[in-house]
Design a protein around this nucleic acid. Structure first.
Length: 426
RNA sequence: GCGGCCGUAGCUUAAUUGGCAAAGCACUCGGUUGUGGUCCGGGAUUAUGCGGGUUCAAGUCCCGUCGGUCGCCCCA
């Protein structure tokens, strides 16, 4: 026997009830996004490696360790997309979206790839839904984006907490980094070994270290060091959140690892009974990205949420928002002639918008009745050999067990009548 | 990339110090030559992830590997 082939590490099939959740999330999220004026966009699963490499700048781990990169037969260096924002920005620049009304509001839903060791809620292929608004800077858009996500979560029955912070713009954050570095240097003997390294490479990351809690609790906070403009934007942002009755918590330690992020940042955390802290999404401004990609400065803001983690949350909460589809009619048949007639009747029913089910692949009537019962069909239509010849069918009420024989041409009318009666009873 | 734990049928689990690999659910077929829900019976050379080793004997012990899970690094 040849070796069994299984799916790759961190990559999963989505089926059964998970697929129902998945489909529901996609439907709800794109519908709500459209209600707020976002337009859908699909972009390629592969891009030039450079697109993602430039965005992450000096963080070499990401490019070298955590991206799926390879050289094509034609000699191009390409990468499976690890996120959506860079691609959306690339599309914005490539297709001159600045000629549209600004900001250009776009949403996407698709798979992304990161070569990482899988762990809780983290996979190598994972799905994200994201919103981006590019071309005009206004804190209202940030608030609106948060509202869109909140509405989506609410409709999906998921409870989340929002944490917000402001990282300053490119200039005032640079100044804050110096202040923070100076503070940390003085206490470097108290830092964990990872943070000693972070101090050099990315001092902001010390702020969300799980070990160095004591050092960071006394550390200078970004909020106190951002410029006037950033401060007033952030104040307005918070006021508007309150205006829309969106509860939030300030988290001065909430940061982003990459340089192109600016200003407001926020994350959505699942509200779980245990004290687990699981982020299901996050977003913020990234005014610095377009320039890195070779365009003029384009103010931009966006959010992305992780579909797998939402599915997990829906499964935990019972997930009764997925309605089980119960067929109105099940068609059973015996013999080749009956099978042909059943096939036609199925089409006729379907065209008349009757929810109809079948199991034509099974031959015994017992099996077919069993299936009809399991599916919960209200009515079963049985076409046996005899009925097929005399052009009649048996109509069986699955609740009462009563059945009668009627002419084939009258079936549709009779079925519709019974279903209507049933509905009125409810 | 580094470390802990785990891996028995589609699912959930059982198997004393190493000693005949079991059961329920689901699926399928039949009892009823043409009728579901209850009942009874048949069916998994398609289950110990894979490959080695120790042993008379390995699901059980050892090594490797793959996968899962949890943590670290990183997190766009």
């Amino acid at each position: 026997m040849p070796k069994k082939i299984q799916s790759l590490s961190g990559m999963h099939d989505i089926f059964n009830s998970r697929y129902d959740y998945f489909e529901k999330i996609r439907e709800v999220s794109s519908r709500v996004a459209k209600e707020y004026g976002f337009k859908g966009i699909e972009f390629p699963i592969m891009e030039e490696t450079e697109l993602f490499a430039r965005g992450v700048g000096g963080v070499t781990d990401i490019v070298e360790k955590e991206m799926y990169t390879f050289k094509t037969k034609g000699g191009d260096f390409v990468a499976l997309r690890p996120e959506g924002t860079a691609s959306v920005m690339r599309a914005y620049i490539e297709h001159n979206f600045y000629t549209r009304p600004q900001p250009t509001k776009l949403f996407y839903f698709g798979p992304f790839f990161r070569y990482e060791r899988p762990q809780a809620g983290r996979f190598r292929q994972f799905w994200q839904f994201g919103l981006e608004a590019i071309g005009k800077s206004c804190f209202v858009v940030d608030v609106q984006i948060i509202k869109v996500i909140s509405n989506i979560f609410e409709e999906l029955g998921i409870k989340t907490k929002i944490e917000v912070n402001n990282m300053g713009d490119l200039k005032c954050r640079k100044e804050f980094k110096t202040v923070l570095r100076r503070y940390l240097k003085k206490r470097s003997n108290l830092l964990c070994s990872d943070c000693k390294r972070r101090l050099k490479e990315n001092p902001l990351r010390v702020l969300d270290c799980k070990q160095c809690i004591e050092v960071k609790s006394e550390a200078p906070q970004i909020i106190d060091h951002i410029c006037k403009q950033c401060r007033s934007d952030f104040k307005n942002f918070l006021e508007f959140l309150e205006e829309l009755d969106i509860p939030y918590n300030l988290n001065p330690f909430l940061v982003r690892g990459l340089d192109y992020y600016t200003g407001t940042v926020y994350e959505f955390f699942l509200e779980t009974e245990d004290e687990e802290r699981m982020a299901v999404g996050g977003g913020g401004r990234y005014d610095g990205l377009s320039k890195i990609l070779g365009d003029e400065e384009r103010p931009a803001t966006g959010v992305a949420i992780g579909i797998e983690r939402i599915i997990l949350a829906m499964e935990k909460s019972g997930g009764d928002i997925i309605e089980k589809k119960i067929p109105d009619v099940f068609i059973a048949q015996l013999g080749d002639l009956a099978k042909k007639k059943a096939l036609n009747l199925f089409e006729e029913m379907r065209n008349s918008k009757v929810d109809v089910a079948e199991s034509f692949g099974q031959d015994s009537l017992k099996s077919q009745m069993n299936r009809a019962d399991k599916l919960g069909a209200k009515i079963t239509i049985i076409i046996g050999k005899e009925e097929a010849v005399e052009d009649r069918v048996i109509l069986r009420d699955m609740n009462s067990g009563e059945q009668e024989k009627i002419k084939t041409e009258e079936v549709l009318k009779e079925v519709k009548g019974r279903l209507k009666k049933n509905k009125n009873k409810d």
